[in-house]
C-alpha cells in the first residue's frame, strides 16, 4: 500500500521558489495498477520519484509499505527500495558494461540470493530474450533493452513496481508488446504497479488513473474542464 498525505515538493530556482507538487493526497492499494497521467511539467515524474523514495518531499507524508518515508534518511530509503521497489525507466537504465543476464542478476545478487543466475535466466526466457543473454545493451534494440529492464524489475519480486514512461522511447508496435509483457508479469507477480505516462491507451489499461494538472490531482471531470479552459 502507498499513500501520500498533503505531499508538497518545492524547489528553489533563480526566479524564486517553484512548487511542483501542491498537496497531493493519493492512496494506492496493494496489487492495484495506477497510471499517473498529465501534461509535460505537471509533476508526474516528480511524484513518482517521491513515492519511490528516490527524493525527499518538502512537506507532507508518503507511506510506502508501512514506512513513513519522511522519517527515513537516504540510507534507510535505499534499503527500503532494495526490499520493496522495482523500476522500469523510459531510458531503460541498463548498465552498459553488463550483459543482459548480468543486468537482470544484479539486483538479485545484491539481495544475496544464491539463485540469481537461475532466476535471471528464467525471467529473460519469460520476456523472450532467451537467445540474447550474453548481449550487451548496445547490442540490443530499444524494445529488447526495455524487456531486459522489465525482467530486472521483476527479478527481486518487488511488491511495488514504478514505471516511468515505459514506452516513451519505443515505437507504437514495440511499445505495445512491452506493455503487454509488463501487465502480464504484473498479474503474475501480483505487484502494485504505478506508472507515469502520456499514453492514454497505456493509462487505460490500468485499474485507475491519477491525473495531475500543474502539480495538483484532479478527477476526470475537473481535468476536462482544465483542458477546455
Amino acid at each position: 500500500m502507498i499513500e501520500t498525505r498533503n505531499l508538497v515538493k518545492a524547489v528553489d530556482t533563480s526566479e524564486g521558489v517553484l512548487t511542483i507538487l501542491k498537496g497531493i493526497n493519493i492512496r494506492i492499494e496493494a496489487g492495484e495498477s495506477v497510471a499517473i497521467v498529465g501534461a509535460s511539467g505537471s509533476g508526474k515524474s516528480t511524484l513518482l520519484g517521491l513515492m519511490a523514495g528516490l527524493d525527499g518531499a518538502s512537506s507532507g507524508e508518503i507511506i510506502l509499505d508501512e514506512h513513513v518515508l519522511s522519517e527515513l534518511d537516504e540510507e534507510q530509503r535505499a534499503i527500503l527500495r532494495g526490499q520493496v521497489v522495482g523500476f522500469v525507466f523510459q531510458s531503460f537504465q541498463l548498465l552498459p558494461s553488463l550483459t543482459a543476464l548480468e543486468n537482470v542478476m544484479l539486483p538479485i545478487e545484491l539481495k544475496g540470493d544464491p539463485q540469481a543466475r537461475e532466476k535471471a535466466s528464467n525471467l529473460l526466457d519469460r520476456v523472450g530474450l532467451a537467445e540474447r543473454w550474453h548481449h550487451y545493451p548496445n547490442q540490443l534494440s530499444g524494445g529488447e533493452q526495455q524487456r531486459v529492464a522489465i525482467a530486472r524489475a521483476f527479478a527481486t519480486e518487488a511488491r511495488v513496481l514504478f514505471a516511468d514512461e515505459p514506452t516513451g522511447n519505443l515505437d507504437t508496435a514495440t511499445g505495445s508488446k512491452v506493455v503487454d509483457l509488463l501487465f502480464e508479469l504484473n498479474r503474475e507477480f501480483s505487484t502494485t504497479l504505478i506508472l507515469v505516462t502520456h499514453d492514454e491507451r497505456l493509462a487505460a489499461r490500468c485499474d485507475r488513473q491519477v491525473r495531475l494538472v500543474a502539480g495538483e490531482v484532479v478527477d476526470a471531470e475537473q481535468t476536462e474542464e482544465a483542458v477546455s479552459a
Partner: peptide, 26 residues
C-alpha cells in the same frame, strides 16, 4: 497510521556480493 520504525530496515546485502559486484564492474 503505519509503524514508522526505521529499525525494521536492516540491510541484508552480504559484503561478498558487493565484492563480487565490484570485481565484475572492474
Amino acid at each position: 497510521m503505519p509503524e514508522s520504525s526505521s529499525a525494521k530496515l536492516t540491510d541484508s546485502k552480504p559484503l561478498s556480493n558487493l565484492f563480487a559486484l565490484a570485481l565484475r564492474l572492474l
